[in-house]
Structure formats: C-alpha cells, structure tokens
Design a protein around this nucleic acid. Structure first.
Length: 683
DNA sequence: CGTACGTTGGG
DNA sequence: CCAACGTAC
C-alpha cells in the first residue's frame, strides 16, 4: 500500500510474531521498524516486580531473535516518556505509520491516546488493533446496549456473539527491515545483581517467549486439559495450563487459545466425553475471566484501586503491619495459608485455589486493607497482571455485584483438606510440619501434645499458633460490620443535614499508606531449597489477585468535590482511533485523523468522544457485512455512553445510596449489597 | 422417609 | 441470593 517511509510496530504486551495484528499490518504496509520502549517509571505504583521484569527480559530476547530471523531486529529504547520516545523513533527512521495493539489498563488507555494524538498531529498514520481479547470491550453489551456488570452474563454473551472471534493470523514469512541506522538500541536493564541472583532459579521452571508459550499451550491442550475439571482444585498438581505469564505478556494469543480449545471441545462433544466437555467449559471460563478483567478495567477505569461497589466504604480495616508481615512470611499459623505464602515468596507462583485462600484469609480473617495484599501480589507474582488481579481481589473482597459475600469466612483448615487432602503441599513448603500426620496437618493447634512432640513441633516456637482464631475473626467481622453500618448511617445523616463532612473519614475511602518495608529481600532465607524442582512449569491462573494501591490517585479522586467530573476528565484522555485493519479496504481513516486533531484538548468532552466513536461504529457496522473488518478500527474509549455511569459504582459521593438503586435493577447476585444498604435500617 | 436447616460452591 | 447437597429431626 502507501509508499514512502516505513512503519513502526510498537510492541508492548504482545510479545509475539504470530497472530499479532499490528505486526501483520506493518508487514503488509512495507518496511518495518519493530520497537519496544521500556519506561517503567510511567507505571508509577505499578512498577513491575522483580520476577515480572525477569520474565520480560527473557521474553524480549526471544522476540528479538524471532524478529531477526524474519529480517529485522527489535529496537529497544529506555525512556521515561513513551510517547516522546516514539516520536524520536519516528523521526530518526522516517516512518510514516505507527501500528500497535490495544491495552486496557488505565495507564495504557491514557498513554496510548496521547500517542495517537501526538503522532497524528505529526502527520503519522496511527492504527491500533485488538490482539489481546476475543472481543473488544465496547462490542459486548446487553440488550439495552449497556455493558454487563456480572461475569456470567458477560461470558454468556461472549459465547453467543453473532460473529466468532477473529481467526488467528500466521506469523509473517519475512519482514522487510526499515532503516533504523539512526535509531540505535538502548541497553535495557531489568535486574540488578542482587535480583539476578534471586532470579537464577526461575529459568529452571519457566521458559518465557512466544514459541515456548505456544508449546505450553499445545502441551496443555493435548494433556491436562481433559482432566482440568477433575484436577483443578488440587493445590499441588501440575494440571493447569501454566499460561498466565505468557498471556500477560501477550506471548500467546487468546484468540488462538480459544480457537484450539474449541476444536477439542467439538471433538469431545462428538465423542460424548462429558468430563472433557466440562473441562473445556471451565478452562474457557478462566479465559473469560481474563477477558472480563479487561472489560471491567475499560468500563471502570478505577477498578484497580477502588472497589466497584462502595458498600465497604466504611469498613474499619485492621491496619496492623504485624499481621501483614506474618502473612507475607507465611507465619500465620494456618498451614495452608503459610505454605501458599512461602511458595509465592520462593517462586512467584501460586495455584489459583491458593491465591483465593491466602487472599480471602487476608481480607476476611486478618481484615487487612485489601490493597496491601494486591500490592504485595503485584510485587511478587510472576504473572502479575493489573486487570486480572484487581478483579480477583475485588471478587474476594466482596466488592463486585457478583462476588462473594463479604460476610463469609473461608476456613483454611477445611480448604486445606479439600485442596491438599494428603498434606503434601503443606509439607513441601513448611518443612517444620513435615512430620505431622495428615490428620493434623491443616490444624496443628488441635493436635495432642504427644503428636506434636513426635513431629518435632513446638507451637509458638518453631511454628506459630494461629495469629487470629477463626471464631475470633468471625466475631470481629460482625462487630466491624456493625460499626460500618453505624458510620454509614451517621454519614448519611450528616449529608441529609447538609454537613458534607460525613464522608471520607473511613480507612476505605481514605488511603491507607502501604507499609514501606515489604520487599522480597526481607524474607526468610530458607525456602528455595525446599522447593524441589518438581515439575518444570507452574500453574496458570486467570483469577489472580495482585496489585497495587495507587494512593496518590485515590486521594486526589476522593477528595475531589465531584468525582463524576474527575472520572469524565480521565475518560476523555483515551485513545481515539482511526482505521481498520486486516482486510481493511482502507476506506476509512481520514475522519479519524480529523477527530484526533480536533481533540488535542479534549479534557472535557468524553461524552462527545464516545458518541462520535459510537457513531463511527455503527456506520462501520452497517456499511460492511462483517464486524471483523473494523476490529482494528475502533478505539478504546473509556466508559459506556451510559448517562448513569457514575451512578453504578463508588466513584460518586453518594456511593452507597446510588449503588443500591443500581443494584435494584441488577442481577440476582446483587443481593448482598442490597442487604447491606438495608441493614442499617433494620439493625 | 419427607422436610427443615446448615454448609458450600458459585465469579 | 440460589442451587445442590448433606445432616438432623
């Protein structure tokens, strides 16, 4: 197509050459300069953790070698400002086009929008694509055109969309290199010496890189997938897909995963293999949860730092760094929790079940502020993923319309016998309990003295007594809830009296500073040696908790007088996209350019922008027979056109009241919320 | 042997 | 909250 300069393909979390629409578009357009920009400071609170950076480093090396064998290197840039670095790359290569794939976390939405604005203003054609999802978030709506607010409805819709997800693209056969002679690589440093030593063992268990991801996928589909349903609860068995870090960095395409799994599904359905079918459905559901996490992030850009439902606004979180430390170090006195935390600590990995157990324990038993837990997960997980992890913690914390009730404590002892019935998992990670019989392995505090003695255990000495009893936790939880209702009622009364000050003084709405001393170095010294190189890989998990509390932003938002406005402002700062892709008949694009230019200062017309994009959508839709054609053509725009957007969740000052009305027209699972808002009146 | 009630899974 | 399932009357 268009002659002249080369194209920049901007790699981010799409570190693969297969089924990469941006790369494919670049190759189709002619010469390509492939770029990766490392600007971690832009991530602020979300500066990637040690193991995550390790993965990234390997993955980039892998990508570079693949690209080289196709004809062009990966140009790496160290930057504190991605957009200006992009601009430099464009200038030094004489590129006329920029291609990249969509991301849906709030930082990327803002940054990518700016990139489009800035480069478009320079006369560069900018096009972006869907490579991360089965369907773009704005394409999945309910019968009224509104975004879904519960997972089941969302996923049901995804599975019954009128058109299939796009079929995966093959890797390019060859890439014509653009002229990057005046665009030298920066050396990227992802780990210091200390970290390097800590990371040394990771490569035994994991092989980052897109072709390894592909192998992992094939191995999973032809192996453990069929038993996924049966095995998924076992803490310790190597029966999950191990795809999550690969998926996080986009080393494997979700569309491809979906595609291949579906083929198996049809096959097993024909065979009448019920277990296989159920396994497929469950596995696909976990893929769906990943989709949903992006969907939520896109529609509710603050969901990584603020509860989606505000009913816990007045919950008196226990701000106890001692508890927090005990949890991190695996010294809570609950063997399953402790084993999990030590595994996380030693390997950066946890089975999904165990993530649920430890995070639930964190929120429900310790009643620590959940953002601390998210932050810790963010720092330590190999597959740390902002969107998935935010969804996971919100689920656990009871702040989703379809999440678990807050008021329900999972008992780690019982969970232990469910997911580690023989205690093998506990024994592997807690050598001090290795000699304890299975009967007591998940509740050593009940074991007779002679049993403990025989096992060499002295509770309170070489293994802790429970730091909080479950019964005590239940009592404290009830009290906390009563307190919460009282505060809420008081706040409401204050508002009715016109005293605005009623809000914002609880720990949930006020930021709780994240303790400083929480890095991996501080951890116990021994764990690694207890980890047999068992298995070569670790688990996959889409419903991962983890994440960060960006207190700064929360503070700003929550003290702002009108949160709706602040949300709208931010929404406006999102990518405006332009063109189509693939089979693009190249009919489009100019309108987009104009739009972008017109919006260099769009601080306040989010709605307008939405409407315009929606309009582009519908014209694209009606003028072409298939929606696939506009896959690359639409741009992430924050938030649905819903006028009651802010009514839906906590970011408005009336959070609780408003969210109850939201809930009333919502789905069955909203119950817990309604109860909560009602209880103050009844109690 | 049915019905009430508790528990658990569910995203 | 609801469904599914178990235990207790």
């Amino acid at each position: 197509m268009s002659g002249g300069g080369c194209s920049i393909v901007w790699f981010r979390r799409d570190l693969r050459v297969e089924d990469n629409p941006a790369l494919a578009a670049g190759v189709r357009a002619g010469a390509v300069v492939a770029v990766f920009i490392w600007a971690p400071e832009e991530e602020g609170q979300y500066y990637p953790g040690r193991v995550s950076r390790w993965w990234l480093k390997q993955s980039l090396a892998h990508l570079d070698s693949s690209l080289r064998s196709l004809g062009t290197p990966l140009i790496t840039k160290r930057s504190t400002n991605s957009v200006s670095s992009l601009l430099e790359v464009v200038k030094s290569t004489g590129a006329t086009q920029l291609f990249f794939n969509h991301l849906y976390d709030p930082l990327s939405l803002v940054r990518d929008h700016r990139a489009k604005e800035v480069l478009t203003a320079q006369g560069i054609t900018v096009r972006s694509f869907n490579s991360d999802l089965l369907y773009e978030p704005w394409d999945v709506n309910d019968a009224h055109g509104q975004p879904f607010t519960t997972f089941s409805a969302f996923w049901e819709r995804c599975l019954s969309m009128p058109y299939d997800p796009q079929a995966p693209l093959l890797p390019p056969k060859r890439i014509i290199p653009g002229d990057a002679s005046r665009c030298p690589c920066d050396m990227l440093v992802f780990e210091d010496d200390l970290e390097k030593a800590s990371n040394a063992l990771l490569s035994r268990a994991w092989s980052p890189g897109w072709s390894n991801a592909d192998k992992a996928l094939t191995a999973f589909i032809n192996g453990p997938l069929i038993e996924y349903s049966k095995n998924r609860r076992k803490a310790d068995s190597a029966t999950t897909s191990f795809l999550s870090p690969h998926l996080h960095f986009g080393e494997v395409s979700v569309k491809k995963v979906f595609h291949l799994v579906r083929i198996k599904q049809v096959f097993w359905a024909n065979e009448g293999n019920k277990a296989g079918e159920e396994s497929v459905n469950l596995f696909l559901k976990s893929i769906g949860l990943r989709e949903y996490s992006r969907y939520i992030s896109f529609n509710h850009p603050y969901s990584h730092e603020r509860p989606l439902l505000g009913h816990l606004k007045f919950f008196p979180w226990v701000v106890n760094e001692g508890y927090f430390k005990a949890w991190r170090q695996g010294r809570t006195g609950y063997p399953l929790v402790d084993a999990g935390m030590r595994e996380l600590w030693a390997t950066g990995w946890l089975h999904d079940r165990i993530r649920v157990v430890v995070s639930s324990f964190f929120v429900k038993v310790l009643q620590l502020p959940w953002r601390w837990g998210m932050k810790y997960f963010w720092d330590t997980l190999l597959d740390a993923d902002l969107e998935s992890d935010a969804l996971g913690w919100q689920y656990i914390s009871g702040t989703l319309p379809d999440g678990r009730e807050f008021d329900r404590i999972d008992n780690p002892q019982f969970e232990g016998y469910k997911c580690d019935p023989n205690g093998e998992y506990v024994r592997r990670w807690l050598p001090e309990l290795a000699r304890l019989p299975t009967e007591w392995i998940h509740h050593p505090w009940n074991a007779p003295e002679y049993v403990l003695q025989a096992a060499g255990i002295e509770l309170g000495s070489n293994y802790p007594l429970p730091i909080v009893g479950i019964d005590a936790a239940k009592v404290r939880l009830q009290e906390a809830l009563i307190q919460m209702w009282q505060q809420e009622a008081a706040s409401r009364a204050a508002i009715e009296n016109g005293t605005e000050e009623g809000l914002g003084d609880s720990s949930e709405s006020a930021p709780i500073a994240f303790p400083q001393d929480t890095h991996m170095e501080e951890r116990l010294a021994e764990p690694v040696r207890n980890n047999p190189p068992h298995g070569t890989r670790r688990y996959e998990d889409q419903m991962v908790p983890s994440m960060t509390a960006s207190h700064v932003r929360v503070e700003e938002e929550e003290t702002s007088s009108d949160l709706r406005n602040s949300a709208a402002d931010n929404r406006a700062e999102v990518p405006t996209n332009v063109t189509t892709q693939e089979n693009a008949r190249e009919t489009v694009n100019q309108g987009g350019l104009l739009n972008v230019n017109r919006n260099t200062r769009v601080q306040n017309n989010a709605t307008e922008m939405w409407l315009r994009n929606a309009a582009e959508d519908s014209t694209a839709e009606s003028s072409s027979s298939t929606r696939r054609e506009r896959d690359g053509g639409v741009v992430p725009v924050w938030s649905p056109p819903a006028s009651n957007f802010s009514e839906q969740f906590v970011d408005d000052e009336n959070g609780i009241g408003a969210s109850s009305s939201y809930l009333q027209r919502q789905h069955p699972q909203s119950h817990q919320l309604m109860n909560w808002t009602r209880l103050p009146q009844t109690g």
